[in-house]
Amino acid sequence: PDEFRDPLMDTLMTDPVRLPSGTIMDRSIILRHLLNSPTDPFNRQTLTESMLEPVPELKEQIQAWMREKQN
């Protein structure tokens, strides 16, 4: 489902985090971005790792969907 895909890389998220802007991304992708630029890739506001907020409900939904697909 589209809501499980990272908006920057269009890959399935495994550890979704919410940026201060409200955008949800995969943690590994935003951390890689932050190594090059300490900004939100969508609005260029300053962004640090400590500002990332886990989204455990979405992570659980993704994991359940993945388990379902394996069966």
Rank of each mutant, 00 (worst) to 15 (best):
N71E: 14
T14Y: 12
A64P: 07
T39P: 00
M13A: 11
V17S: 08
T14S: 13
S37E: 12
P41F: 01
P41R: 01
L8I: 14
D15T: 09
E3P: 07
P16S: 01
S21I: 06
R18Y: 01
T48G: 05
A64N: 13
W65D: 12
I62G: 05
M51G: 07
G22M: 01
D2S: 11
V55M: 09
P20C: 03
D2T: 11
L34Q: 04
V55T: 04
D26N: 03
E3M: 10
L12N: 05
V17W: 00
M25C: 08
N71L: 12
R27Q: 00
M51A: 08
L8M: 10
T23V: 14
N43E: 05
R67I: 12
I30T: 02
R18K: 14
N36M: 11
F4T: 05
K69Y: 14
I62A: 05
E60L: 12
Q70N: 13
S28Y: 05
E53H: 11
P20H: 06
S50I: 01
P20Q: 00
P1G: 07
M25R: 08
M66D: 09
N36L: 10
D15Q: 01
E57V: 10
L12D: 08
F42P: 04
A64S: 13
M25E: 06
P38I: 04
P41K: 02
T11Y: 02
D26H: 03
P20N: 03
R44C: 10
P16K: 04
I62T: 07
E57F: 09
S28I: 12
N36P: 00
V17D: 04
P38N: 15
K69P: 09
T23E: 07
M51T: 09
E57H: 12
E49C: 09
D2M: 12
I24G: 06
N36R: 15
I62P: 08
S50R: 13
L47T: 04
Q61N: 15
F42W: 11
M13E: 03
D40P: 03
R67L: 14
L12V: 15
P38F: 15
R5L: 10
D2Y: 06
I24C: 04
T46Q: 07
L31Q: 09
E68L: 12
Q45E: 15
L19W: 00
P41Y: 00
S21H: 02
T46V: 11
E49M: 03
Q45K: 13
D15N: 09
K69E: 11
I62K: 02
D40Y: 05
P20Y: 01
L8R: 02
E53T: 12
P41C: 04
T14I: 14
S50C: 02
M25W: 02
L34K: 07
L8C: 08
L47S: 02
L31A: 14
G22Q: 03
L12K: 09
T23P: 06
M66N: 11
K69L: 06
S50K: 09
I29M: 03
N36I: 09
T11R: 07
P38W: 02
E53Y: 09
R44K: 14
L19M: 09
V17T: 03
M51P: 02
G22E: 04
S37K: 01
R18D: 08
N36H: 14
R44Q: 15
L34R: 02
R67C: 10
E57I: 01
E60R: 09
L35H: 15
E53Q: 14
L35M: 13
E3R: 08
P38G: 13
W65H: 15
I30V: 13
P56Y: 06
T48R: 12
E57S: 09
G22K: 00
F42H: 04
P7H: 00
N36D: 11
S28F: 04
R18G: 02
N43P: 02
L8D: 03
I62W: 01
M51L: 09
L35V: 13
R32V: 08
R67P: 06
L12G: 04
P41H: 02
I30A: 09
